[in-house]
Design a protein around this nucleic acid. Structure first.
Lengths: 332, 332
DNA sequence: TTGAAAGCGCTACCAT
DNA sequence: ATGGTAGCGCTTTCAA
């Protein structure tokens, strides 16, 4: 009767089967030059026969490192976080590091969860509005802040918000729009705050300041709920809100962009099909950069920690129909 | 000068500071009734002072469990996997289990990566076409298969494909369509295979069998490349392909649905704005179910393993404009 | 080249 | 109620 050799075999059993000490097994299975070819062979055979895989726990405990790192994000809705995480995971894999994820959205014990996570990893990437700065600085592992306001002493990676938002509004001004509404809550995320700041900057010389409509979330529904007035340019915190606004406008019989100009942020696939003017972010690159920086921190000489780094990745305006009527050339 | 009390404190230091043994510390910080209120207090104070957090490694090694599980997926593009993973993470968190992720897409050592991951977790959820069955059955931890053909002895969770695809085609038949094209590669994923099967079943009584256009991927580009002929109903393996087809149709001057009917699968946000008829899957529920089942396996009495479970979650046809002209009532 | 043994930080059993 | 201590599985000196 065939037995399923579900490992759980330990280094001791391999040692015994191969007739050597566990030290030799450990070496044979990893080092090179400290073991005879013969011995190595014998050990490997034994290991194979027992379907032996070294215990990560034992190994990590002995080595003093997890060979894993974590990423904390508010939620995973929409392609934004997914893309960031994918870029992160790919880069981390390149360093031989596993990735743990933690979504704080809808969790009341976010801080505890982050602390617990910190105990499982060599370093942590923390995104946006997930936990307060104090938590970050009190962690015992290196941290990289992603899409988050700079934290003292912590590396920070962000996408450009304010400047591109300014460009966006200037584009709308060129279209002749003068009355602006911003939909979204600047306090919900640093990214949104930056966009709102850019909008205000762009309009600081204008007669009428932008009107702010705070929404509870960043989703379709938030956009659908937003009260609409014809003749305004509606700059939304993200694409989902903008798409909600589009839906509401249609329902209200308002034409876009004739009666109402609308813009989003993120360049979701849906934005393309809705003809939504928006802004594209280098999502994967955000994640990959964070992973790389974190790895640098983890492996750096802790006696001489480098000064905290800051990087702002460029974002790109994507002009489509919803911001106003364009000249002959077709924008898509 | 204030010192940053970056923990790395061990249970021994806490014990010493509190003037007790490590056993007492361990108890005071977790158990209840085995420690005086006084002692507990003293220990907690010491722990706080040293910013002590028990080492997960030490704890896991002693307890013989990771309190973590993993999910393996091909890629993270599109909202599908992101949603599944979110549902998974949320459910796992409910069990106090951390989540490790592994994307096999674009990795040549997928099998090794999965084995490595298996060493870090108490159980694993494996999605779709990531690694061969042999790998799954040879792992030393419980596995749940998700969106994957059943593996002997392994719990399987899937979404309904064939039957809903059949319904979809029948709907198209009611519209009067008789010539069908399926775009996507059934060998790329069990889900796609199931949809293709359903299409063929639905047309088994028809004169003309469906035409299969195999695409290299499941993305927009795949759909854009697909050669189009007017007068056909184009059933796509997923929404992204379908949206690509829509784009190509527009470019070719074909009207949808008049010249070409198109359907997708997944009900992306973009599908709504493109008026695409599609199928909705319970993505979060898929993930959550897998997490629950895995937890059951992990905690079950291993002497009496329950028979493998199978579940197929219902999917829902979402009729919009792209499948044909509908009667007066507006479908959206 | 190989073995013995000391940790790594914790839990849990056995005494007291 | 508390302390002592034997593991958990591995890596890595230190000797031989």
């Amino acid at each position: 009767m065939a037995m399923k050799a579900l490992s759980k075999a330990t280094i001791y059993q391999v040692a015994q089967l191969a007739g050597v000490s566990i030290a030799t097994v450990s070496r044979a299975l990893r080092d090179s030059d400290l073991v005879t070819a013969q011995t190595r062979e014998r050990v490997q055979a034994a290991a194979r026969q027992l379907n032996f895989t070294p215990s990560r726990l034992g190994r990590s405990l002995a080595e003093g490192r997890h060979a894993a790192n974590g990423i904390v994000f508010p939620d995973l809705v929409g392609p934004y976080y997914a893309e960031v995480i994918l870029g992160y995971e790919a880069a981390a894999a390149g360093f031989g590091s596993s990735v743990l994820i933690l979504a704080t959205g809808g969790r009341d014990d976010a801080e505890a969860a982050v602390r617990e996570l910190a105990g499982r990893v060599d370093g942590l990437t923390v995104m946006g509005q997930t936990v307060p700065d104090e938590v970050i600085t009190s962690l015992a592992v290196p941290v990289v802040a992603l899409a988050r306001d700079p934290v003292p002493g912590v590396d920070t990676v962000r996408a450009r918000n304010a400047r591109t938002a300014k460009n966006l509004v200037e584009h709308l001004l060129e279209h002749g729009h003068r009355r602006f509404t911003f939909v979204g809550d600047p306090d919900i995320a640093p990214d949104v705050r930056g966009r709102w700041d850019g909008v205000r900057q762009a309009l600081s010389q204008q007669q009428e300041p932008p009107h702010l409509v705070r929404t509870p979330g960043l989703d379709l529904e938030a956009g659908e709920q937003a009260a609409l007035q014809p003749g305004r340019a509606v700059v939304c915190a993200n694409d989902e809100i903008a798409l909600g606004v589009l839906l509401a406008a249609e329902k209200a019989g308002l034409r876009v962009p004739e009666d109402l100009a609308v813009t989003g942020w993120d360049d979701l696939l849906a934005a393309r099909f809705a003809g939504l003017t928006t802004v594209r972010q280098p999502m994967r690159e955000l994640g990959a950069t964070a992973a790389r920086w974190l790895h640098r921190r983890i492996t750096e000489d802790t006696d001489v920690p480098a000064a905290p780094r800051r990087r702002v990745l460029a974002t790109q305006l994507v002009v489509r129909r919803s911001c106003g009527i364009h000249s002959p050339e077709v924008h898509r």
